[in-house]
């Protein structure tokens, strides 16, 4: 499943590029808790996705594959029970006169029960979840495009 989104933020590209490796910044995101760094230097957190069936907290690993001031590539793996979500996230940062435009493209793969009936509702859930985390993490001065 390929998803994408765009928003603008007051955060600078340099700040944005550090996002996925900064536990303290990620802690500010309401859908993330218990944020920590594991032995491999990856972020571990509980991410709670809001779904029509209720809140599902996924144990999540966030690995930054590559990050600079123009773009990042982040691998996210979430699992709970027999659900699994793997996301490869490409984020690019485009400075504008007053802010930064963030564009993201995600390749989302569902596994286990999530790949069965849940695939019918997963599109919107995943899109909102990714966009929500990125926007919140990027800071509070957000202007939706």
């Amino acid at each position: 499943m390929k998803l994408s989104g765009t928003f603008t933020t007051q955060a600078s590209p340099a700040q944005l590029a550090r996002l996925s490796t900064e536990p303290r910044q990620l802690e500010q995101v309401t859908s993330l808790r218990d944020v920590a760094v594991d032995a491999h230097g990856h972020i571990r957190a509980i991410f709670t996705a809001a779904t029509p069936l209720g809140a599902i907290p996924l144990t999540t690993t966030i690995a930054t594959d590559r990050a600079d001031e123009s773009s990042s590539r982040v691998l996210v793996r979430g699992t709970r029970g027999q659900h699994r979500v793997d996301v490869t996230l490409e984020i690019s940062y485009q400075p504008t006169a007053t802010a930064t435009q963030v564009s993201w493209h995600a390749d989302v793969r569902l596994g286990g029960t999530g790949a069965s009936v849940a695939q019918r509702v997963a599109h919107d859930i995943a899109r909102n979840a990714i966009d929500g985390v990125l926007q919140q993490a990027a800071g509070q001065h957000l202007t939706l495009t």
Partner: peptide, 12 residues
């Protein structure tokens, strides 16, 4: 390709 069964219910 990911090894997921594409017909794990009576819809599919």
């Amino acid at each position: 390709d990911d090894g997921q069964l594409l017909a794990a219910n009576f819809y599919d």
